[in-house]
């Protein structure tokens, strides 16, 4: 029971990180129908940006409050990662509209390889540990066997930040004119253009929002694991894509739901079965869902037209 509750907490924390990344996949897929393979590496890049700015703020500028530093880091990382997201779309994806169908995916794989190796060349291949940020825990209750069920402050921070940002994001998509334009482009890009929506700008903004949410996930990942390396984009990226597919690709609540489910499956699998095969479990879910339930939990079934 104690282990169950503890794993539930861990799983939900991990799941919120996956959910944040998954939104980037699902939005881009919804609007231009491509798998943005480089999204995982944008996430990894943002973790590096956060790491460097955290070091600048704490050691050079001498901000002693970790929470204040994290707040600034989050904002800076969101801005700079958005710029990366925008640039990637502008250089690698926009010229390919109307090219053959697999071209954007191949281009995205190229961007993914480029980004991870760019970070490797620029920052070195070794794992980068962060200085300890938030170490305190709250002991929720103690089990009969003496096993403490703990909720750490960083888990609270991760869940609260995720919830707040998702609320803001939800408001943007549902209530603002940008969100309306985006949903219109998702339904019919040509018609949206005829009605005076700047489609290119809307797509760019989709990438910017996706990158910004990925950078939140990157900062939270750094906070949670305390270590990052240039190759850390691939596996979380694939897991977040699995989350997006599981929730129903194109559906925003689905992405968050899928992220939470994947996070829970991963932690429970590690706790009760074998930690070695946790990635196999995630990859298998991806294959099984795509083969047997391609429209996911909350997605619309896809109709192929000639």
């Amino acid at each position: 029971m104690e282990i169950f509750v503890q794993q539930l907490i861990n799983g939900l924390t991990l799941g919120s990180i996956y959910g944040l990344i998954a939104i980037g996949y699902t939005m881009v897929f919804g609007i231009i129908g491509m798998v943005n393979f480089a999204h995982g590496d944008v996430f990894m890049l943002s973790a590096f940006i956060s790491l460097i700015f955290f070091l600048i703020l704490t050691t050079w500028l001498g901000i002693s409050s970790v929470v204040l530093a994290l707040f600034f880091v989050l904002i800076i990382a969101m801005v700079l990662t958005s710029l990366w997201g925008w640039t990637v779309e502008r250089i690698a994806y926009r010229p390919l509209r109307g090219s053959f169908r697999l071209a954007p995916l191949i281009s995205a794989i190229g961007v993914s390889i480029f980004l991870s190796n760019f970070v490797q060349v620029a920052q070195g291949a070794r794992n980068k540990p962060t200085p300890p940020m938030v170490g305190d825990v709250i002991v929720l209750f103690q089990g009969a066997s003496g096993y403490n069920v703990a909720l750490s402050y960083k888990q609270i921070i991760i869940m609260v930040v995720t919830a707040v940002l998702l609320t803001i994001f939800w408001y943007v998509v549902q209530k603002t004119s940008l969100g309306r334009a985006q949903r219109a482009c998702e339904q019919d890009r040509k018609m949206a253009a005829l009605l005076g929506i700047n489609v290119d700008r809307t797509i760019s903004l989709t990438f910017v929002i996706g990158a910004a949410l990925a950078s939140v996930a990157g900062t939270m990942y750094l906070l949670y694991y305390g270590v990052v390396s240039f190759s850390d984009g691939f596996v979380p990226g694939v897991k977040a894509f699995t989350a997006a597919v599981l929730g129903g690709i194109g559906s925003l609540p689905g992405a968050v739901l899928g992220g939470l489910i994947i996070g829970l499956i991963e932690t429970f699998w590690s706790a009760y079965f074998s930690i070695e095969y946790k990635d196999v479990a995630a990859f298998s879910i991806l294959a099984i869902v795509l083969i047997f339930m391609p429209s996911g939990i909350l997605g619309r079934p896809e109709v192929e037209k000639v």
Binding site: A92, A103, I106, S107, G110, V111, I113, N117, V121
Partner: peptide, 13 residues
């Protein structure tokens, strides 16, 4: 690999 990645993008464009 850096050039591979950039080359794949350039090729597609």
């Amino acid at each position: 690999l850096l050039l591979f990645g950039a080359g794949m993008v350039a090729m597609m464009v």
